[in-house]
Design a binder for these strands. Sequence first.
DNA 1: TCTTGAGCTTCCAGTTGCTGGAAGCCTTAT
DNA 2: ATAAGGCTTCCAGCAACTGGAAGCTCAAGA
Lengths: 137, 137
Amino acid sequence: MNIGDVAALAGLPPKTIRYYEEIGLIRPVRSANGYRVFRDSDLHKLAFLGRARTLGFSIEDCRTLLALYEDDHRASAQVKAVAEEHLSQIEEKIAQLRTMEETLRTLVTACHGDDRPDCPILNDLAGPGPCEDPSTA
Amino acid sequence: MNIGDVAALAGLPPKTIRYYEEIGLIRPVRSANGYRVFRDSDLHKLAFLGRARTLGFSIEDCRTLLALYEDDHRASAQVKAVAEEHLSQIEEKIAQLRTMEETLRTLVTACHGDDRPDCPILNDLAGPGPCEDPSTA
DNA sequence: TCTTGAGCTTCCAGTTGCTGGAAGCCTTAT
DNA sequence: ATAAGGCTTCCAGCAACTGGAAGCTCAAGA
């Protein structure tokens, strides 16, 4: 199999596959003409990587997971630890984004969005934002 | 004001401030010794940028927003358009992350996480994943 | 057989938004 | 005088690709 074929089957661009080889995630052999030759095991790994990447695992996590996948003596606890760590980072990221989302939605709603310059969004950005009213106390 | 002072006031690292100058977001003047000198207007812009960045706006969006902020003849609709676009990208990102989160949580829950090699997480990654049961029909 | 087009190769550069570090000047305090 | 700390520039690197150029190879059609 040439790179175009595995690319189509694995759902990854050829460029990405070459990159994965470059960083040592896969090791396709070469035919006499210099073309990469992908075996079933390579295709399998690429599919694994593609799936892991869609779940948001970093390349380094992918490397670890692939190694565990190929290790018959792995403990599932090792895999679970990687996944749990990743999951908690995703949760954190979602929380951050939700905070942004909420603030932005409030601001967007408050902005009338016409041809006048007055704008609550810019007012917020210009700050001082959440500060005590100097007239208080 | 030197860079360290504005950095402390604006809550941005000096490196970041230099970078913002490099890409033309701010233009502090220079004193005779070559040090950057920040005026109140520079500090103000940096605070604006810091706030916009915490809301997740890209640097290019920040550039646009800053220009609108400084334009007395802006239409709030322009600002709102930028914010709405950004908001929808955030929503999209959240949706993606939630999909990942859900899948990962399911897998993590299914994995007993002991010293045995059997692991639903790796099974999922190895695919074929969601495919029809060949025994069906 | 020749040609054309597609597919493959490598290498280099760019993306986003900083961040770290090195080498060296400036300032301030002791 | 000297040492510490702040400032300067420049270069490199992070993640994970992606685009493009230059050039080789292969398969099919006239």
